[in-house]
Simulated scan of single mutants.
Amino acid sequence: MLEEAKTTVPKLALSNITSGYGPVAIIEALSLSIAPGQIFALMGKNGMGKTTVLKTILGFVALRSGDIRLDGTSMSGLSQASLISSGVGYAPQEQALFQDLSVRDNLRLALRSDRGFAQAVERVYGHFPFLRDRLSQRAGTLSGGEQKMLILGRALMLRPKLLLIDEISEGLQPSVVERIAAVLKEERRANGTTILIVEQNLPFALGIADSWAVLKLGRIDDAGEVAEGTAGRVLQHLKI
């Protein structure tokens, strides 16, 4: 008798989630599933609820209904500290750095103590070597592209198993976008990192993603696996 094929438990699963601010629901009955080691691109115009999805996963926006599961276990009620301990990393879009603190201090904030800092920061240097000589520099004096790389580097300090990234390519020159794309693909290849990336830069997002979805007014408008012709399909939904 043949054994039944084992079903892979999603790394992250959102089931009919609804969330929002005050009386207004921004996300309504949204579902998506991301397999372990997959890069998933969530795209859409501004104001469609993409960032709210990430903040709901992290508990910054209250979940009104539905369920969010990490490795098959409900994330309901977990604190941000517990999520970090569970291997969740976050690279936010806005107010992400302490501008007056040094590069080192910003990286250090990813850890509970100095223990393990040297080892963790060496991993970051492997992706962004320029940071090695900038540890004492104030984060606010870095260029826009350097700040985005610092934000991502900080998120990688704890070698996350699930990495949530919000609009990291916004306003960056192509060479920096290419570098970030290479880092994310290497993290997935070397560490099996699962990545949910919110983006409007379609060439960047679809260049690294395995699967995608377009968000429109808090709902999934379309979704699929990345393949030839995907960019045109996404553009039709975005009406660009």
Rank of each mutant, 00 (worst) to 15 (best):
A118G: 12
S169M: 02
R159H: 11
I26R: 02
L14F: 05
K6E: 14
A25P: 03
H127P: 07
K161G: 12
V234W: 01
N106M: 08
L2F: 14
A81E: 14
M75L: 15
K45C: 09
L142R: 04
L150M: 07
D67C: 07
A41Y: 03
E187T: 08
D100L: 14
Q93M: 08
A62G: 11
L184Q: 03
L184M: 14
Y21V: 08
L101S: 12
R138D: 14
G145D: 00
E122K: 15
I68C: 05
L162G: 00
L131V: 12
S65Y: 08
E225T: 15
E187V: 09
K148D: 05
R233F: 00
A120D: 11
H237P: 00
A96C: 08
M43A: 05
E199L: 05
P129K: 08
A181E: 06
K185R: 15
G140W: 09
A35H: 14
R112G: 13
R64Y: 05
R219V: 09
G116D: 11
S175Y: 00
K216P: 04
V24N: 11
P129E: 08
Q173I: 05
V9E: 07
R219A: 07
I84S: 08
G207N: 01
L111Y: 12
G207E: 01
F204M: 04
H127L: 12
Q38T: 10
L70Q: 09
I208T: 04
E228Y: 06
A227M: 11
I68H: 07
G22H: 09
I151T: 12
L196E: 03
G72I: 13
Q99G: 12
L131F: 06
T194I: 00
V183Q: 04
E3W: 15
R115V: 13
A41L: 09
P23M: 10
E228G: 10
D114H: 13
A96K: 04
S143G: 05
G116H: 10
G140T: 13
A91V: 04
E146A: 01
G192Q: 06
T194C: 01
V198D: 01
Q38Y: 05
L217F: 13
A181H: 02
I165D: 03
I165A: 02
V103S: 00
L162N: 09
T18P: 06
L78A: 12
G192I: 07
L109Q: 12
R115C: 11
E122T: 15
A118D: 15
P36W: 00
F204I: 02
L32T: 10
E186N: 14
G20V: 10
Q95H: 12
G47H: 07
D100G: 13
L63T: 12
G77T: 10
A41H: 06
G229V: 08
Q95P: 03
I84K: 12
S74K: 15
V234K: 02
Y21R: 06
Q200V: 11
L12D: 02
E167S: 03
I220F: 04
R233S: 01
P129T: 12
G37Q: 08
L12R: 05
L135G: 00
I165G: 03
G20H: 07
N201D: 13
K216W: 10
T73V: 15
H237F: 02
T194W: 00
K11H: 06
Q99C: 11
R188K: 15
G140N: 10
D210I: 09
I26C: 05
I151L: 06
Q173Y: 03
K11P: 02
A155I: 04
Q147H: 05
A118M: 13
K161Y: 03
N106Y: 04
G87Y: 03
P23I: 10
L238Q: 01
G232Y: 01
L97N: 05
